[in-house]
């Protein structure tokens, strides 16, 4: 048989443009691989039940919850995490818009919000308020009441914020 079941697997992933090769236990969640093995702690663990979206990363361009994925499932994939948005410290228009619209309070959900909104803006350059609310449905924020978050994302599409 070509592939015997194993308790660990050597995986190769590209994260924010950098290649990583690691041997990981099959039971390790992707979010733990990112945070504990690679020290990419910008991706947060909120609920660890797949409900809150704080752990959202982009897997081959699509938002996914990294607490509902095993690291071994990401073998061969290209990932983007919050650390990849502003690698040189220069904020993206979306990040600047979050700042200008006061779209965060405690900030815990923000990495996930930014990754989901980044994916939306890459598909739909000028999303409506309805588009934004639909795209962010999987990201829970317990501080803001969402109004400023939605305004911040819509404003990027309209080109009225952050250049």
């Amino acid at each position: 048989m070509a592939s015997e079941p194993r308790a660990s697997r050597a995986i190769e992933v590209e994260i924010n443009g950098e290649r990583y090769e690691r041997e990981v236990p099959a039971r390790r969640l992707l979010v733990h691989f990112l945070r504990d093995d690679l020290d990419l702690t910008g991706t947060h663990i909120g609920c660890d039940t797949g409900n809150c979206g704080a752990c959202t990363v982009l897997l081959d361009g699509d938002p996914v919850k990294s607490c509902m994925l095993l690291a071994v499932q990401a073998d061969g994939a290209s990932l983007r995490t919050i650390e990849g948005l502003a690698p040189n410290g220069e904020l993206t228009p979306l990040q600047r818009s979050f700042n200008e619209h006061h779209a965060l309070q405690c900030g815990y959900c923000t990495p996930g919000m930014l990754m989901s909104a980044t994916a939306l803006l890459e598909r739909t350059s000028s999303p409506s308020e309805e588009d934004v609310r639909y795209a962010l449905q999987g990201n829970i924020c317990r501080c803001t009441g969402y109004v400023n978050i939605v305004e911040a994302v819509v404003a990027v599409g309209e080109g009225t914020s952050g250049g």
Partner: peptide, 8 residues
């Protein structure tokens, strides 16, 4: 603990 296989 779980074992993992990825058949082709």
């Amino acid at each position: 603990e779980v074992a993992y296989a990825r058949p082709a």
